[in-house]
Structures are given as structure tokens and as C-alpha cells.
Design a protein around this nucleic acid. Structure first.
Length: 312
DNA sequence: GGTAGACCTGGACGC
DNA sequence: GCGTCCAGGTCTACC
């Protein structure tokens, strides 16, 4: 019993490049296999959980993206899976051409789309688990959330029911326990509307302000969530940004001074600031360790950020 | 508005 | 093997 889904991507979409474009492709429940160039993970569908192996068999830009699923799918399941994969691979991003006009460096390489999660909520929790922690701990937290709560990644209702102490002791999320449960409860109670956040009609400033009001979401996390919502006009400044400002852009001075200069530097890219920043950073990593799609999740993939990559 | 310190975990380091 | 230190972003209290 199995099913197959075929998705037609934009003409410039290259799966191995565009799937491996942001660190979340290395976080559970995502499993990237460099040998087969496939991404495998379970999805929560109306009819229950289903595992899908996603690939682009032609391995050429614009080739059909396929998903091999481990069970039959009814109409509702197929629609939900298609919607989640399209979000995850950012296939409906209409701003790529505009980005390439704003920053011509990436037009030839085709860079433009950033990988994200099938749902905004998964992106939100992944962002919280990436704050104030080294990358290996982020990997562990996401793995345990999938092992303990839900293999296809916990849904808001599943986390809203949990005691914070359970997340702390069994998932290793530390002091983020209460914040994660509070975020889930904000959604299940209807006080936080994820569709409103993702709606292009919602002004960027309103979405950004709403994110900053959430528990566990500060300036960095709000900036990161903005790009995960397809709003690329904000930077997500963390220690790696400062390192990039010093090492690559050549800025000097205090952290605060470097941040100010980094922000001014990317202002020229307007609504595409984050993409220009991020692909610069990503290119720096790939120059040292090869294309991200070749990274072994258990080795290079566990240390792809910051000091470790830069020190090699 | 700016700053100091607490929060929690895992890795690095010294013994 | 054990203890100590440090990195990492957010939040709160305080000035």
C-alpha cells in the first residue's frame, strides 16, 4: 500500500540546492540523504501520519518533484500533503525574480528559495529551540520532541496538553519548557492566529510586532520567523551575524557597532535583506565544506553553524 | 533607554 | 572521570 505524489515546481527549482538552503533541513523529523539526494520525513495528514520520501528524479532545474508515501492517500490527505510540501520547499515564493533584480550575485547560481517547515508552528518551535544554544543542542531538542511527543513533529494541541516539566526532563529543552507550552496554548486558544501571520495581506510591521509579543521570541527569533513567513525585509541578528560582519565584511569595533554597520550594509537590498545576508553566509559555509546537499547529517550537519565551521 | 544577571544544556578544557 | 568554564538569545529587575 503506497501512493505517489507529483508536484510541478517553478522552472528554476533545483531540489538539492533549494532544499538544503537553511539549517532546518538537518533537524528532526527531516532526514536528508546525500547519497540519494532525498528528504524523508513523516507528515501529519487528516487521515493520520504518513511517511514521504521527496526527491527530484531528473536532478535538473524545473524537474518534477515526487513524493513516495508509505500508505494510500485519500483526496484530503493528498491535498494536505501537497500543501505542506509546497510550503516546506517554498515553491510558491513569487519574490525570487525580484530578489535577483535586487541582488544580482545570486541570479546565475539560482539561489533564492529558503527551506522551511511544513507548518508555521514547527518553524516557531524550531526557532525557539535554536535560541541561546549551540547547534548540537538544537538538533537534540528537535529529535527528542519527535521521539517523545510526535514523530511527525508535535502539533500545537499535543504540546498544549503537556506539562512544561515533561518537556524539560524528557526533551531537554531546559528553561524553554514553559515558553513552548505557552506558545502552543496561545494557538489552541485562538489568541495567536498563524494564518494571519502568514497572510500576505498582513503588513510586515504588524506581523513583526506580534511575533515580538510572543513568549520566547526576541529580536533574533522574530527576525528569523519573518523570513520563515516569507517576509525577507528583516535581518535575524545573532552572534553569527556579528562574526560574519567582522570576518567577511571587514567591520571592526564593538558588537553593537558591528551590528549597526551590518544593518546599514544590507539596507540596500530592501525587502530582500535577509536573503542577501543569508546566501552570503551560506556561500561562506559551502566554500569551506562543499555544497550543503553533500553534507552528512551526522558529521558536517551537526556543526554547520558559527564557530565550528569557521574555525576549520 | 540601557545594562546586568539569571536561565539551561552540552562541549571544551584542565586536572 | 570529575569539576569548571563558556557560548548562546530572551527576560526581568534595576538604574
Amino acid at each position: 500500500m503506497s501512493a505517489r505524489l507529483r508536484i510541478t515546481p517553478p522552472a528554476d527549482y533545483l531540489f538539492r540546492r533549494d532544499c538544503c538552503s537553511y539549517g532546518y533541513f538537518l533537524l528532526a523529523p527531516n532526514v536528508w540523504d546525500p547519497a540519494t539526494r532525498t528528504l524523508t520525513r513523516p507528515f501529519l495528514l487528516p487521515g493520520g501520519r504518513a511517511h514521504a520520501q521527496i526527491a527530484q528524479p531528473s536532478d535538473a532545474p524545473g524537474g518534477a518533484v515526487t513524493a513516495r508515501v508509505d500508505r494510500d492517500l485519500d483526496v484530503a490527505d493528498r491535498a494536505a500533503l501537497r500543501r505542506q510540501i509546497r510550503r516546506m520547499l517554498n515553491l510558491d515564493d513569487a519574490g525570487v525574480a525580484g530578489f535577483h533584480r535586487a541582488d544580482r550575485r545570486w541570479r546565475r547560481a539560482g539561489r533564492g528559495r529558503l527551506f522551511r517547515s511544513p507548518t508555521v508552528f514547527e518553524d516557531l518551535i524550531k526557532t525557539v529551540t535554536s535560541c541561546n544554544v549551540a547547534w548540537p543542542s538544537t538538533i537534540t531538542m528537535n529529535r527528542r520532541l519527535c521521539e517523545v511527543i510526535e514523530p511527525a513533529f508535535p502539533a500545537p494541541g499535543q504540546l498544549a496538553r503537556r506539562r512544561p516539566q515533561t518537556l524539560r526532563s524528557r526533551c531537554g529543552v531546559g528553561y524553554r519548557d514553559r515558553r513552548i507550552v505557552d506558545l502552543a496554548r496561545l494557538i489552541t486558544s485562538g489568541r495567536l492566529d498563524m494564518q494571519w501571520l502568514e497572510d500576505p495581506a498582513t503588513p510586515d510591521e504588524d506581523a513583526h510586532r506580534a511575533l515580538l509579543d510572543l513568549p520566547g521570541i526576541g529580536p533574533y527569533a522574530a527576525g528569523n520567523m519573518m523570513q520563515l513567513l516569507g517576509r525577507y525585509g528583516y535581518l535575524a541578528v545573532d552572534t553569527e551575524t556579528i562574526r560574519h560582519g567582522r570576518a567577511v565584511l571587514g567591520f571592526a569595533g564593538s558588537d553593537r557597532a558591528v551590528e549597526k554597520r551590518v544593518r546599514a550594509h544590507y539596507d540596500r537590498f530592501g525587502a530582500h535583506r535577509f536573503r542577501s545576508y543569508w546566501f552570503e553566509l551560506w556561500a561562506h559555509y559551502e566554500a569551506k565544506h562543499g555544497p550543503a546537499w553533500t553534507w552528512e547529517p551526522r558529521t558536517t550537519g551537526t556543526q554547520f553553524t558559527a564557530a565550528k565551521l569557521n574555525s576549520d
